[in-house]
């Protein structure tokens, strides 16, 4: 029997402080650091399983960060230095100084470890070609489109194929930059389609909210070869209970997806990753029920946080996931009554 409202994570969790002190310690051997990473991955896997998530990963505990990690392994990139994200937060930004090419399956070992240590479904997050291009300095390609497609065809596609060969059944293409340039949505669509061309796995696209309420994404959704989108809604929604338009204003855009003919699944963000306040299970329930009604089919609704939870403490992140899982169960009970 189909289980309504499967629950999942988006990807990242804050790394345990003990792991950071181990990996940053120059006196600790590579082997011991590797063991510490395995321990941290195992801890995250078991935590997420115990909290009751249906689809899991390892909290991206081995990755430096979603941009810097893949860039380290792609030929053609050179790190330029750190650039401000906001205030005193910075990210390491790279230049593209030559032809882009794929060197190795840089998520292979991580995936194999997770596969060996869980019986749950696994969703592998992979940073998308469009975001990698958008967050870099291009000194080599003639246009952004050319760069994006080179990354999609020559890096992301072989990476995804290698992950599928290892047994990955769900791939999430992470594209936080996707909607930040509304005029480039055609390039974004081609980027995802080229990245997943010929692969035999479920494709999920994660796009952060960026300014125009997914209005630029909606027309592209039916044309992109993805079976699911995991999107941000909770941070624009009210905290009041209710399944009406007024209280669930954050989820109103779901109707637009339907109007544009999108028929696939939506992983709805039900917890705000920018605040410590924990959503109650009842609030999560109402967000799910409203979304199911807006999409016209409860089987299309998956449940997740808005984005990766690494901005929150581990305690807050796990509380939010717990509440999310309980809320999904309440929503199932309502559906069954």
């Amino acid at each position: 029997m189909h289980k309504y409202f499967p629950t999942q994570e988006i990807g990242s969790l804050k790394k345990p402080s003990w792991l950071l002190s181990v990996v940053k310690n120059p006196d600790i051997s590579k082997e011991d650091k590797s063991r510490a990473r395995n321990d941290a991955a195992l801890l995250n896997i078991k935590m997420l399983e115990d909290l009751g998530l249906d689809v899991i990963y390892d909290g991206e505990v081995r990755r430096v960060e979603m941009y810097e990690e893949p860039v380290r392994y792609i030929k053609g990139f050179e790190f330029a230095g750190r650039v401000r994200s906001w205030d005193n937060k910075y990210y390491n930004k790279a230049r593209i100084t030559g032809e882009i090419s794929y060197k190795q399956n840089f998520h292979g070992e991580e995936f194999k470890f997770i596969k060996e240590n869980t019986k749950h479904d696994i969703k592998v997050p992979v940073t998308g070609a469009y975001t990698l291009a958008d967050w870099s300095y291009d000194e080599h390609y003639k246009s952004k489109e050319e760069l994006v497609l080179a990354l999609a065809k020559n890096v992301i596609r072989p990476l995804v194929k290698d992950l599928v060969k290892l047994g990955a059944k769900i791939i999430q293409i992470d594209e936080p930059a996707a909607t930040s340039h509304p005029s480039e949505m055609d390039v974004f669509r081609q980027s995802v389609n080229e990245s997943v061309k010929g692969i035999n796995a479920k494709v999920v696209v994660h796009a952060c909210f960026s300014g125009n309420d997914y209005e630029s994404l909606a027309p592209q959704m039916p044309e992109i070869k993805a079976q699911q989108y995991t999107l941000e809604f909770a941070n624009r929604d009210s905290w009041n209970l209710g399944v009406n338009d007024k209280e669930r204003k954050g989820y109103d855009v779901l109707k637009l997806f339907k109007e544009y003919g999108y028929k696939g699944e939506i992983g709805i963000g039900v917890t705000d990753v920018h605040v410590d306040r924990i959503e109650t299970p009842k609030l999560v329930r109402d967000r799910i029920l409203y979304s199911a009604k807006a999409l016209g089919d409860p089987a299309k609704v998956y449940v997740n946080p808005d984005c990766g939870l690494r901005t929150r403490s581990r305690t807050v992140a796990f509380e939010k996931i717990k509440s999310m899982v309980e809320g999904a169960e309440l929503a199932r009970q309502t559906m069954n009554n």
């Binding site: 650039v83 401000r84 994200s85 906001w86 990210y91 958008d134 930059a177 930040s180 960026s210």
Partner: peptide
């Protein structure tokens, strides 16, 4: 977000 940049 500062317009279409990756800076806030």
């Amino acid at each position: 977000r500062i317009y279409e940049t990756n800076t806030f």
